[in-house]
Design a protein around this nucleic acid. Sequence first.
DNA 1: TCCATGACTTCCG
DNA 2: ACGGAAGCCATGG
Length: 112
Amino acid sequence: MSEGTDFYRRVYEIVRKIPEGKVTTYGAIANHLGMKGSARMVGYALRHSFTEAPPIPAHRVVNRKGMLTGKSAFGGDRLMEQLLRNEGILVSDDAVVNFTQHFWNPEDEENL
DNA sequence: TCCATGACTTCCG
DNA sequence: ACGGAAGCCATGG
């Protein structure tokens, strides 16, 4: 089933730690998992995250450019943008405004 | 077991 | 600066 591998679980765990109003990147998560080159796997896992519980704020995860690359997976291309705006994050042209300002590093959670 | 795919990232032209 | 191709690793058929 969904639990599949621990890899997915690790991704979900990190994403759930993302503070509201903050966003992170696939590479940052992958790096935190020790798989820098496998940023794709992070997005791959998030795609299945919709079937996981509790719900995962996957909308807070964007690519290194801050673009909402996964918006298509939300059923509506506008939904992901709506969710981000709902948290106070401005989105323009399918990209997070002041992305670096809203950026949250998973390593920061450990460093806390 | 092997081949093809993917919510990415980096390099080359 | 922009566009295209390769690399990356795990999952599914």
